[in-house]
């Protein structure tokens, strides 16, 4: 357990010390909200109707953007190799890194959603529904992301391939995530979303750890 928390603490500390990374991600997230009205027009009614979907797509793309960081640095400097001999199994290490990654890439986006809500003319009700569905859905996105990052860690061009691999797998997350916002069917959608997040974040560390082992071999 000490190793688990130490790893999370290290990743958070490194990111805070290097700085800017989370901020850049938030900036990208907000920028998507800024350019969408240029593309589809500033009509407030239309923006408000599309806003939940836009916020989800923005979150989705921002998270893909930060994916390559997840294992790349530790692989480059040899830490990943040494994690194989840590006091906790590689699966737990992947889980710890995934949690740290969620804290560093998903949480800042959740915090930044009010900005998008204002830009996209969302009312309070749809803002908090969107934020809540993001809160439930982002763990699945991060877990799939960890899998994609692990699979491509030994590739120099991995930064491009991982998103292409993960995107189709994330379709259900997107469907239920956005489905959870619009009234009517939001109950079952929220449950499905939570179920997917739970299942994916339970099993992805195993698949990702397997991929990391193969990559080292």
């Amino acid at each position: 357990m000490r190793a688990f928390t130490a790893l999370i603490a290290r990743d958070l500390r490194l990111s805070l010390r290097i700085g800017g990374e989370a901020l850049t991600l938030v900036l990208f997230f907000v920028m998507i909200g800024v350019i969408v009205p240029f593309a589809i027009g500033p009509d407030k009614g239309q923006l408000a109707r599309l806003a939940p979907g836009i916020v989800w797509i923005a979150a989705f793309l921002s998270m893909l953007l930060g994916l390559d960081r997840l294992f790349r640095n530790d692989d480059d400097d040899g830490s990943l190799l040494l994690f194989r001999h840590a006091a906790i199994p590689l699966e737990a290490i992947v889980a710890a890194k995934t949690i740290a990654h969620w804290l560093l890439t998903a949480l800042p986006l959740l915090v930044a959603t009010p900005v998008l809500a204002i830009l996209l003319a969302m009312d309070f009700e749809s803002w908090w529904r969107t934020t809540f569905s993001l809160l439930l859905g982002t763990p699945a996105l991060v877990a799939f992301g960890a899998l994609g990052a692990a699979v491509t860690v030994s590739l120099r061009r991995g930064g491009l391939i991982a998103p292409v691999l993960i995107l189709p797998l994330c379709v259900p997350v997107l469907i239920f995530g956005v489905g959870a916002i619009s009234g009517g069917s939001s109950g079952p959608a929220l449950l499905f979303l939570a179920a997917i997040s739970l299942v994916v974040s339970t099993f992805a560390p195993f698949a990702a750890a397997l991929a990391l082992r193969v990559a080292g071999d």
Binding site: V151, L169, P172, F192, I196, A207, L210, A215
Partner: peptide, 22 residues
């Protein structure tokens, strides 16, 4: 590596199917 992705995809395809139908 591809085998891992293939199997994850295989598990996921029914979920995708279900979500798309929904």
């Amino acid at each position: 590596i591809v085998a891992i992705v293939t199997l994850v995809g295989a598990i996921n395809i029914p979920v995708i199917k279900f979500s798309v139908d929904w």
